[in-house]
């Protein structure tokens, strides 16, 4: 049963829209944020550093739990729920 977290997300139903609902202001991350809590606290492990060292988010796999929103202290995230019709659609949660 050694499923990766990406593998786990693969069992979920996501209706992915065109608009991203999370935007990272990397300038804030790069100048103000030391801890980068988002990189380890997201239960879906969606935040990563790209080749340039900027924080990116795979918003398509978002569980809409809100953990990153609460834990990002520097307000570097623009975070909304996806529009109606989009995002996670739980069937057995």
């Amino acid at each position: 049963m050694g499923t990766t977290v990406e593998g786990k997300l693969g069992h979920n139903v996501f209706k992915i829209g065109k608009e991203r609902h999370i935007t990272v202001n990397t300038e804030i991350c790069n100048t103000k944020c030391k801890d980068k809590v988002c990189l380890y606290i997201c239960p879906a492990f969606l935040y990563k550093l790209d080749d340039q060292g900027n924080v990116t988010v795979d918003w398509e796999g978002c569980l809409e739990c809100g953990t990153c929103l609460l834990c990002c202290l520097e307000d570097a995230l623009e975070w909304e729920y996806p529009r109606g019709e989009n995002g996670i659609q739980y069937r057995s949660a």
Binding site: M1, G2, T3, V5, K8, H11, L63, G66, R91, A93
Partner: peptide, 26 residues
């Protein structure tokens, strides 16, 4: 959660199960 599931005293409880969904909330 993976470590919890693999714990020798927990693994037999979930053994043979199929993952249906992964969810999270604050």
């Amino acid at each position: 959660l993976d470590d919890f599931k693999a714990h020798p005293h927990v693994a037999p409880l979930v053994a043979g199960g199929e993952l249906l969904e992964y969810s999270a909330h604050v």
